[in-house]
Nucleic acid binder design. Structure first.
Length: 235
DNA sequence: CGAATTTGACCTGCGC
DNA sequence: GCGCAGGTCAAATTCG
């Protein structure tokens, strides 16, 4: 009996932690969304000015030739925030692609080292990413993607098996899938285009809150159901 | 033993 | 022109 109480308390604690995590993610995403909107507005204004003055392609900046070569997206590079264990130093994100690390640097503005990866799924794939821990919260990893993959995603992206990921990771992954589904993400749509369309949606924050809340409640119900089943079978 | 990672050196752009 | 910072290379090392 005590064991059951203990188990339930642990479950409750885990759900609370997950809720805190999700609240934090929501906060980060909301801030990010606001910042991106502001940046998009700024960029649009800047582009109009530069294309009028110089007559070059709006996205072409000769002074940043090499940098654009390394991360050749004229668009804003895609940034992804991932919650991990604070003591986890691996900087590994399971995003469905296979990455090979080719460098690491300590940057001026962040004591945590920044790792550089390039895609190793295809021989000449130009896709790259930078991964660094968040300055203010070591349990958050920030991944910045650059370049585009010249091949498809691996067979089972975002489909963790219980043998490779623990329950918590599986739940988080499932949550992401549910939230993306709530936003109408379709697999044949390019992820960057999908994200851009979300950012420009004026109801983004409202819909995100609803989707996350719905998923949390769904997960809690599933868990409660599981616990009840276990109790019944044991008694 | 081959593949992946680590790490110091090197290259390039930018600001002063 | 010089120094700094970010990004990449490649030899050495580690791992499976």
């Amino acid at each position: 009996m005590d064991e059951k109480v203990e188990t339930l308390e642990l479950e409750l604690q885990q759900v609370r932690e997950e809720n805190n995590t999700l609240r934090f993610m929501l906060e980060v995403m909301s801030k990010k969304c606001t910042n991106l909107k502001q940046e998009i507005n700024k960029e649009e204004n800047k582009e109009i000015i530069s294309s009028n003055q110089i007559g070059l392609s709006p996205n072409f900046d000769t002074s940043k030739r090499a940098r654009l070569e390394y991360f050749p997206t004229a668009k804003k590079p895609l940034q992804v925030f991932v919650k991990t264990h604070p003591n986890d130093e691996s900087l590994i994100i399971k995003d469905g692609y296979q990455w090979r690390k080719y460098g690491q640097k300590v940057t001026k503005d962040n004591a945590s080292p920044r790792a550089y990866f390039r895609c190793s799924m295809a021989p000449n794939c130009p896709a790259k990413k930078k991964v660094q821990k968040c300055l203010h919260d070591k349990s958050i990893i920030v991944a910045t993607y650059g370049g585009e993959h010249n091949h498809g995603v691996s067979n089972e992206p975002f489909k963790p098996s219980s043998s490779t990921l623990n329950d918590r990771e599986a739940i988080n992954t499932r949550l992401c899938e549910d939230v993306m589904q709530s936003f109408g993400y379709e697999k044949n749509v390019k992820f960057e285009e999908y994200v851009n369309s979300l950012i420009q949606d004026p109801n983004f924050t409202t819909v995100l809150v609803k989707a996350v809340a719905k998923t949390i409640i769904g997960q809690q119900h599933k868990r409660q159901g599981l616990n009840l089943n276990l109790n019944l079978s044991e008694e």
